Amino acid sequence: MTQRSLPDDRRPANEGPRAAARNRAALVAAAREVYAESGLTAPLSAIARRAGVGQGVLYRHFPDRAAVAIAVLEENVRQIERAAAADGADLAQVLGVLTWHQTESAAFVSVLHAEGEGSPSGIPAYALALSRRVERALRRLLPDGHRLAAEPDDLMIAVGMVSGAVTGPTREQRERRALAAWRLLGVEVGPVRPFEE
């Protein structure tokens, strides 16, 4: 059977790299939602469906399940870094962004528990690197004499303690528990929401 070509005015435009970037962003956003609902073991086909693309497009951007998870975690960390670098940023605001990510992602919580190199925990190097980036972003905003700056490890111990409190079947319950944990630590937290530029 011979296919007739469409006239130029009826052919969809090839958007090339723009479509690729848009598809990747849609896949990361879809993965965040699917992981929040079903955990990291959710089928990759569910992520592709939610993003509105075929599985072939997913595999073009991400060769395996780990690559999808790393992309989502990387975006979480980037949001925290952008929030910390924003004009007028303060620790409470950035802790609000961090807390939003904690309540949205169990995988992100595990990254925040990454221990130092050589630890027997078996935590992958990428998780340790992401955890250190979060620490650097927060540490830059710590005022002198802040309770989380008393000892070198206090900041990430507090983050880990709050992460441990982030439990519950709904995002609202997890947020309520996270805010209670920060309050018990005597730390002010701004609005719990994603960073928007």
Rank of each mutant, 00 (worst) to 15 (best):
A29W: 03
A29E: 15
A30M: 11
A36T: 02
A36Q: 15
E37A: 14
S38Y: 13
G39E: 07
L40E: 14
P43M: 07
P43A: 14
S45G: 07
A46F: 02
A48W: 11
A48Q: 05
R49Y: 03
R50M: 03
R50Q: 15
G52R: 10
G52F: 11
G54V: 08
G56Y: 01
L58G: 01
Y59T: 02
R60N: 10
D64K: 08
D64P: 10
D64S: 03
R65N: 08
A67G: 03
V68F: 00
V68T: 01
V68P: 08
A71F: 01
N76G: 05
V77W: 01
V77C: 06
R78H: 09
R78V: 11
Q79M: 10
I80H: 06
I80A: 03
E81Q: 12
R82P: 05
A83C: 02
A84E: 04
A84P: 06
G88S: 09
G88A: 11
G88C: 04
A89H: 11
L91C: 10
A92N: 08
Q93S: 12
V94R: 01
L95Q: 05
L95I: 07
V97G: 05
L98I: 04
T99Q: 10
T99G: 06
W100H: 14
H101E: 07
Q102T: 00
E104F: 06
S105C: 15
S105Q: 01
A107D: 15
A107R: 10
S110F: 09
H113F: 13
A114E: 14
A114W: 06
A114Y: 08
A114C: 11
E115V: 09
G116N: 09
G118W: 13
S119P: 03
G122A: 14
I123N: 09
I123Y: 06
A125I: 08
A125F: 01
Y126D: 07
L128Y: 02
A129F: 00
L130R: 12
L130I: 04
S131R: 15
S131T: 01
R132L: 04
L138K: 07
L138P: 00
R139M: 03
R140G: 07
R140F: 06
L141N: 06
L141E: 01
L142H: 05
L142T: 04
L142W: 03
L142R: 06
